[in-house]
Amino acid sequence: MSTVELSGVSHAYGRTQALSDVSMTVEPGEVVAVTGPSGCGKSTLLMLAAGVLRAQSGRITVAGTDLAGADDASRARFRRREIGLVLQFGQLVPDLSVRDNVALPLLLGGHRPADARAAADGWLERVGLDVAPDTLPADLSGGQAQLAAGARALVAGPRLLLADEPTASLDATSGRALLDLLVNTTVQAGGSVVLVSHDNAVAARADREIRLRRGTIAHQVALS
């Protein structure tokens, strides 16, 4: 069973067609880079696979669950359990400490708070975020917020890790270290990774590139 399967997926924002009849799969243990120029539909594709957006037509299954047919609450529960999401600017909850932001998937999943926060501290250390755990997101730099988002994405051991420009706010060395951690941790646990990026150094980390152009797949090539 593929980790992700999109079949004939289309999505539009008003009169702007973002994706047109896109079909693709991501296999267990595979790292796929989705690339293409600005506005080609790659972030929309990621948000559909994450269940943040609901496809207007076509079918999306993640780990065998039909996301296109699920309601908002079901998609949110599924996302918390199975998907790690890293977005370009971190998108942390502003009123929660960095520790609680990272612990959030575990706290919402019913884990004991002490266990969730201990796990969060461990991941904050692994991503190399050297700030006090009670620091608020407003006091983090863009790069620090991105490291925290990386820790949050990994804390629950996701079956699918989705990352949109995961290193955009980091310098080359820190970005490569975070990318290695995201990819290696997920793949070694049998999970799959989808990387959306303009950055060729990020795309080069993938097993396969899916190139989008004007909302359709221009090409797919194996890189490994």
Binding site: A201, A203, A204, E209, R211, A218, V221, L223
Partner: peptide, 20 residues
């Protein structure tokens, strides 16, 4: 055109990965 771009991107990305 599409085949050329795909092959060239793949060749470059593989090389970048080797160098990384």
């Amino acid at each position: 055109v599409a085949g050329f771009v795909a092959r060239q991107r793949a060749a470059h990305l593989r090389r970048i990965r080797d160098l990384q």
